[in-house]
Amino acid sequence: MVALLTIAALYFLLPVYWLVVASTKSSAGLFGSFGLWFSDSQWLHNLSQVFSYDDGVFWNWTWNSFLYAGIGGALATLLACAAGYALAVYRFRGREAVFKVVLAGVLLPSTALALPLYLLFSEVGLNNTYWAVLIPSMVSPFGVYLCRIYAEAAVPMEMLEAARVDGAGELRIFNTLVLRTMTPALVTVFLFQFVGIWNNYFLPLVMLSDDHKYPLTLGLTTWQSQADRHPELYQLTVGGAFLSILPLAAAMLVLQRFWRSGLTQGSVKG
């Protein structure tokens, strides 16, 4: 059992370890030395190269990734919370229909939508803008699904009633009471959406042509695909890949506790 756990740990950590080692090497060392041990350490030089190459376009990509994932994730969470809450506490005509459509949205692969989105967005002139990536990122059917289940379990109807009797409007109840009660679900939805957007590739690939609007994923693959002609880009791709996984890897390690507590709420009730 210990052997199994150790082998699994090696398997999951090996590529990351390789990346750390490789990011310290020169281009010659990358191809000429044993991959799992250090040879010519020039880490700082490599990393400063990553940041300065092409007028520091790597900074742009990093900023864009945070922008898309941060703003998109936050707005998606807010919209999903409002919608999930509405589906959970109000009885109104069309409620079941809306929920069915949301479920269909959960089951539809997002990359099956990327091309249709591109066709539509280029028709209305939204392609190659920040909006082209941000707008689709604000919609999370899975988030609505999670929020509905959570709100059903966690928002006490007595509390809403009491607030209504006190004369609070529906919007005010939502802003003050509901958002606070639903915080654990919101954290989960935000994390899901943030990671989803951060890791997304197909959508920015089809939408964006200006490399100053690229997120990290798209920027680094551009470097990788040009490395044939510009061999120094091999080292930059490796260094950039190392830098790009730092923020999320750190977040993963810290937030996996949080992640866990919210997840059971989302299990499909078979």
Binding site: F12, L13, V16, Y201, L216, M252, Q256
Partner: peptide, 19 residues
């Protein structure tokens, strides 16, 4: 161990593929 196994989820698919 859970953290170690979960770490790759934080690596975008394209970066994992480059790796």
């Amino acid at each position: 161990l859970r953290a170690a196994y979960f770490l790759p989820y934080g690596v975008p698919g394209v970066i994992a593929s480059i790796l």
